[in-house]
Write a protein that binds this DNA or RNA. Structure first.
Lengths: 148, 148
DNA sequence: CGTAAAATCATACTTTAGGGTGATGCTTTC
DNA sequence: GAAAGCATCACCCTAAAGTATGATTTTACG
């Protein structure tokens, strides 16, 4: 629903820009016939404008090509609509080590911090992911594509 | 180093394409003066060509903006060449539930067996996989393609 | 039929994980 | 400059996981 609206909005912007360019072209055509620019200059300007516009929209389209593949079917997934999935860099780092099978103690030694710090990080991770254990966090992170 | 080379290569392709388009333009100009196309048609063709080219290159640039974030770095994976990875059907069943984030107690209730039985199963799984914890088992099972 | 493997369960113990609370220093942001 | 977020650490307590050992029952196979 939202996606289609956004897509339509983008199309509207595209169409509007295209119309504006056509107006600019007409104006240029007016000047062209009055001031006798060389054909090459005229064509170059046209080509440049459309090239820039094309690159702009092409870039936009290219960036929007996120696959969004999610066929994960968790067992009795609870609908947590208000969870914050924005992990800090440190939390993400801890999560990756958790997913790699390291214990809290090992992660603490690896990152040169105390065990309590890792416990706090993991607690915050669980809270943000809406889970209650490290194995659930791993499973959840997989569905969110946070980890491979 | 590699990036700059690739960037230069891309620039070369871009420049080459641009030159080719200029040649096409000149050819079209030739036809233009000989067959008297309307100016609007001519401009439209030019605009369309450069729009398409622009979108193409813009899309290319946009797609190359992949962040490439990979902080995987496993911790000194031990080469256990002679471990037995043949899990029994029950052990595999338990392993899958472990990977789905269930606790031993939950697995026991799900499979209608006692908690001690699940503990025995997990212990055997760890032994067969050559690991020491459930998170390591999940990681190992992923590398062995036992789980997704 | 007998044996080996698998599956089940128990008891006791140690280690690890997780929950709750509070605190400090630092950076960013409004 | 106050507020918010991040990263750090501590303490206490409970729950869960893991280790070790032993045992019974069921199933599969030669």
């Amino acid at each position: 629903m939202i996606k289609s609206i956004l897509l339509n909005k983008k199309l509207l912007v595209f169409a509007g820009s295209f119309g504006a360019i056509l107006i600019i072209l007409k104006t240029m055509e007016f000047f062209f016939f009055h001031y006798k620019f060389s054909l090459e200059t005229y064509l170059g300007i046209i080509a440049f404008i459309f090239l820039v516009v094309g690159i702009y929209f092409g870039s936009k389209l290219g960036n929007k090509k996120t696959p969004e593949i999610k066929i994960q079917e968790l067992n009795s997934t609870i609908l947590n609509s208000s969870i914050e999935t924005d992990l800090s860099t440190r939390e993400l780092e801890v999560l990756l080590n958790v997913a790699n099978g390291l214990s809290n103690k090992e992660i603490a030694e690896k990152l040169f911090v105390s065990l309590n710090t890792i416990k706090t990080h993991t607690a915050n991770i669980y809270s943000k992911l809406g889970v209650k254990s490290r194995t659930q966090a791993i499973s959840k992170a997989k569905t969110l594509n946070l980890i491979s």
